[in-house]
Write a protein that binds this DNA or RNA. Sequence first.
DNA 1: CTGAAAGCGCTAACAC
DNA 2: GTGTTAGCGCTTTCAG
Lengths: 342, 342
Amino acid sequence: MPAKPSLPSPALYGRPISISAVAEQAGVSIATVSRVINASKPVSADTRGRVEAAVAALGYRSNPFARGLTRGESRLLLVLVPDFANPFYSETIKGVESVVRRHGYSIVLGGAPDARGPEQPSLDAVYNRLVDGVISLANFQDLQPLIKDLPNLPWVACSEFIEDSGLPHASIDHGQAALDAVQYLINRGHRRIALLGADETYLWARQRHTGYEAALKRANLTLDPQLVRVARGTDYSFGMEAAGALLALEAPPSAVFAVSDTLAIGAIKAFRRAGRRVPEDIAVVGFDNIPLSQVFEPALTTIAQPMFELGAAAARMLLERLAGGQPESRTLQHALVVRESA
Amino acid sequence: MPAKPSLPSPALYGRPISISAVAEQAGVSIATVSRVINASKPVSADTRGRVEAAVAALGYRSNPFARGLTRGESRLLLVLVPDFANPFYSETIKGVESVVRRHGYSIVLGGAPDARGPEQPSLDAVYNRLVDGVISLANFQDLQPLIKDLPNLPWVACSEFIEDSGLPHASIDHGQAALDAVQYLINRGHRRIALLGADETYLWARQRHTGYEAALKRANLTLDPQLVRVARGTDYSFGMEAAGALLALEAPPSAVFAVSDTLAIGAIKAFRRAGRRVPEDIAVVGFDNIPLSQVFEPALTTIAQPMFELGAAAARMLLERLAGGQPESRTLQHALVVRESA
DNA sequence: CTGAAAGCGCTAACAC
DNA sequence: GTGTTAGCGCTTTCAG
């Protein structure tokens, strides 16, 4: 027994050693080896000892393909992410990882398929049954081809989802959150409030847009279409771009509700570059509460989403689904975090 | 033939359809089906047509486990990442993805194993041969158990590597880059320059540290140990923490070289919170040139790493290795980007 | 050009 | 408690 426990070293030269080699070495049948490896059936202490010794000596590791073939599962989960440079997604993924790993699953990250072409390796992994299930953060418009199969696939949505589809999802109430954000701006006396929106093929983008309008309506403010800008992505640069357009207006807004912190940060950058002070000249509230939002200057007033917990919840739901259960969709709490930008 | 081409829909009820179902439907043997699927041997146009029709009609997709079992490969590559919330890593991963995908591979993202425990699912995936190869951005100290097997594993390092190990890697010249950064500060008249370092189990952290010292030495500046702070991580918060310590010094520095943009941003935040102006009272140069660095206020003066290209290069090297080649390590170019913070 | 058949490594009945 | 054996779905000789 080695002094410090370490990964047994498998045969790296020649072919990898198989279960039969272990069986031979231990003087038992392959079935017995399988039993001790999987603890699937009782095995006498004596034989178990011999098998374990053989496994250790040979550095045996079971072949995942053979195992997958017979068991019909891989213990691999696919996480579909629109853009993993966006901190919202990376935090969420961390949440997924944390629960999934405890249950012996690993995650495969897939870029969400877009219109770029017919090659959709991630979806292949689904249909091929290489992965046991999917957690999707992607927009379902891009996932069109498989929508009809959704009820039959072990699939869970996170943040994004399809209304009334029965597809289980973990999310916050985007509409209410947006309403809260805009209401806050109204309470602070703002009357010309712009919406810096995102690609509305995303449900969350549509819902936040709706929440924005609802807040205005509730305050009897007229909705000025000029004040609604939809950015083409959530990178900082898109925020700057949209903010520039807002500034060019004859009557620019006194406040902006951005549907993503990255967009908000880009907008603030553009405003300051144009000589505007935030929040004095123009107030900005963001959405997500990414780690950067409290470090950025001015620190962002934003809607906090429980990103990590959202991922964890989705993961738990998928695990439940895989175990044959019928997980309930969950709506987690958001919160307005007031800092400096508004 | 459907109007719009879409993913063939596999049998989702009951068992998935197998190659023999296709063979039966097409009136051929499974061997022939295999041949047309893989284009491995010539098949008459007529039979090929029938097989293809059957595949389409049934929505057949080959079972990746069975295929992996016989072929001994999965077309899955593992990318080991220390922290995928760090933009440096996410950009790099994008680079990996872009080349790998074109070659029919998918990537599995693995959290790099740390000392947290013996459970190392990512490494298991390697030893189990579930993945065909690995691109590691992780620190090799944490990878200790497998170092001895390295020469035999299809493994490529990115940014991080082991000197003189023969392990192929794609990286920049961290030492020279750090030297460039500090030299710039010296040229601007700074004499008390602090190092905001990172966990030195990372080679890049050690090399950047070395570069810092080399620059000071070259300018005949004395090395004040008090001015060297090693942060416990690269999150913004660690940068703030370390910067606070620097400020508490009797003779604080007039400039700081941070080995990561996230650290630099955290430091700037701490400085401003303490009433210091950047760069007037204290100059800061970062490292990486993450997207945020040009949006942050003040915009970061930093060393640009070709993140995307680093990932892409590593991916190409791994692919070459898998094809039986002996890829050369590559050192990519860095560049000092002067903006506002120094 | 095509079919029959032998495995790949493993799990899960089914015997004993 | 343990061994034998029949597949899992696929690729690949080997015949023809």
